[in-house]
């Protein structure tokens, strides 16, 4: 469990047609088996960093390795190693959960029987078995979030990237999602998670990093950070390290 899941070395990234770079010489390491939380104010670079790690954005400097594989060189093979649960609902609303899982399962490289078994399991665990053949567009916000999560994990990824997976859901759905994520982690999946729900993050994450203005300003276990900064919760720590001014105005 001490292997490195994600290693970022001297990452440099600038959005096209922008003069100011998002990251410059950014370094970060996430060990296998960690429940890693990446936090920061709006516009700090959380989603951009996650998009660089998942290969959605091409960076110009440095390197990112997932389980020892350089993503810039082995994009397709690396893609099998991780799952991604984007903030936006990323599937086909016209299809049912089962149909979505069948399609994304095939694209994830699974065989027919694997898809069938995994679909049945996921729909059961995430409370979607009764609506497996209904169109997703008819679902509530919480059910849609659960479908979004199910698609991201259908291929049993070794690393799971989650960009605000519980945004806009009720307490019950949040608990169900967080519990399922813990279950996945117990079975060996490394979680890399961003959220603005800091109380939820305290419950889930055992390692956190705070990012602001494209720089990692703190990175350790949550307990150690709280001790170092004499705070009793993640919210206090967050305000302490990032200040109180708006960042996205």
């Amino acid at each position: 469990m001490s292997n490195v899941a994600v290693r970022i070395n001297n990452l440099g990234f600038t959005y096209p047609r922008q003069s100011v770079s998002c990251f410059s010489n950014l370094n970060l390491e996430v060990k296998e088996g960690e429940r890693f939380g990446l936090f920061g104010p709006n516009g700090a670079g959380k989603t951009t960093l996650m998009n660089c790690m998942t290969g959605l954005l091409q960076f110009e400097e440095g390197s990112i390795q997932l389980l020892g594989h350089e993503i810039a060189h082995h994009k397709r093979s690396v893609n099998k190693l991780f799952g991604f649960v984007p903030q936006d609902l990323s599937y086909y609303q016209e299809l049912s959960p089962a149909e979505n899982l069948a399609f994304f399962g095939a694209w994830s490289g699974l065989h027919k029987t694997e898809i069938k078994n995994k679909t049945a399991e996921l729909l059961e665990v995430l409370g979607l078995a009764d609506v497996r053949n209904k169109k997703v567009e008819e679902f509530s916000g919480g059910m849609k979030r659960r479908v979004n999560l199910a698609i991201g994990v259908i291929h049993n990824p070794r690393i799971l990237f989650l960009d605000e997976p519980t945004v806009g859901v009720d307490v019950h759905t949040r608990h169900a999602i967080i519990n399922y994520l813990k279950h996945l982690n117990e079975n060996g999946t490394t979680l890399i998670y961003t959220s603005h729900q800091l109380s939820e993050a305290e419950d889930l994450c055992n390692k956190v990093a705070l990012i602001d203005d494209g720089k990692i300003i703190a990175h350790d276990t949550l307990n150690q950070l709280l001790i170092d900064h004499k705070e009793d919760g993640l919210e206090g720590l967050f305000i302490n390290l990032t200040g109180k001014s708006y960042r996205d105005s």
Partner: peptide, 17 residues
């Protein structure tokens, strides 16, 4: 635009399919 494309790009299958 609807996000499914973002996920497709992270999967081990070429968009040409």
């Amino acid at each position: 635009l609807n996000g499914s494309f973002v996920r497709l790009k992270t999967l081990p299958t070429n968009y040409l399919v």
